[in-house]
Design a protein around this nucleic acid. Sequence first.
DNA 1: TGGATTACGTGATCTAGATCACAATCGTAA
DNA 2: TTACGATTGTGATCTAGATCACGTAATCCA
Lengths: 192, 192
Amino acid sequence: MEAKEILKQHVRKTAILSDEQFEYFFSHFKPKSFKKGQVLISEGEKVDQEFFVISGCLKAFFINDQIKMYILQFAMPTWWTSDYGALYNQSKATIGVDCITDAEVLCLSNQDREKLCNELHQVEHFFRWRTNKGYLASQKRLLSFMNNDTKARYEELLAMYPQLYNLVPKHLIASYLGVSRETLSRLYNNHK
Amino acid sequence: MEAKEILKQHVRKTAILSDEQFEYFFSHFKPKSFKKGQVLISEGEKVDQEFFVISGCLKAFFINDQIKMYILQFAMPTWWTSDYGALYNQSKATIGVDCITDAEVLCLSNQDREKLCNELHQVEHFFRWRTNKGYLASQKRLLSFMNNDTKARYEELLAMYPQLYNLVPKHLIASYLGVSRETLSRLYNNHK
DNA sequence: TGGATTACGTGATCTAGATCACAATCGTAA
DNA sequence: TTACGATTGTGATCTAGATCACGTAATCCA
């Protein structure tokens, strides 16, 4: 399926847009292709876009003291990603985004999103729900962090996204779980 | 300042509403007073409201296996709280909300929020931004969890909300930080 | 094709924080 | 005022996971 159709189906789950309205909405997105390893947002630079993933897998991550990396999100098809803190506050990126695999995305500028939200009530409605879902997911992950040990969080992750196991290197999964790669390695090799 | 004025100033930070529109908006809120310890949402029951805090301090918490409590949020004046997962999915509460101190709140039903969002574009805009701020705060807290040790998180919390130290019992602060009360106690009594 | 970089496994050691146990103090309701 | 529950402090012990160290397999790329 082509990018436009994927976005259309995604948006129409929560917003009512006529074909004309959707065409107008879609006209603000720029399709782009990236190779594995390419960078979409690099820390310290200006952020003015967010990304809707059509294919492939991106990661959004934070690096502490140039040393440890923590993955905030694996962005899969129909997911949105960016450094939203920097995007909304017009500040420099503290979160990086790059490609784990080759990927196609649709880019939307901050300015265009706000313009569209303002022009079309249903677009504002859509983005309210999208953010809402993100908020609930984030809260759930926070609880999981406090509640569960690494093994439980690992199993939870793989139950939710089985593709990840073969798609992304293990040390990235460790970064998502917030543990060292050694601990993760011992975990799934069953050194109980 | 009275409740209506507090809500008005809060909403007008992000939404443009005429006095008439605000009056209409406000007419959907029910003011309520609670005593310390009173319960606003109890786990397992139906949730159909969210709360805007006028005065006092609430907590939103999750209890694991009837044993450990984790605090998701201390809700202070001008903050919103509820079990949003249950609220939006029309399911039973998994998160509880009760009063740490005597409190006054404004109650808004899920149905009325959606009605208002639908009727007034600016109300939808307001709630999009509110959720956005919540999402960013939640993401920040998640990062802090992965990045920082307990001492750093404790200092971060007190730097942000100095009132908490005298307002809420220490074991609740421990529950927010996700550590045992003993560890927290040793922390601020400087058993390095 | 071969050399280098990245990914992964695993042993040894160390540490933050959990857990258990007990005592002291503070509030608040009767 | 009394008494009981809630709150807090602190010692002793235990454990999940970090860190360090090293070796091997896989992958990339000129």
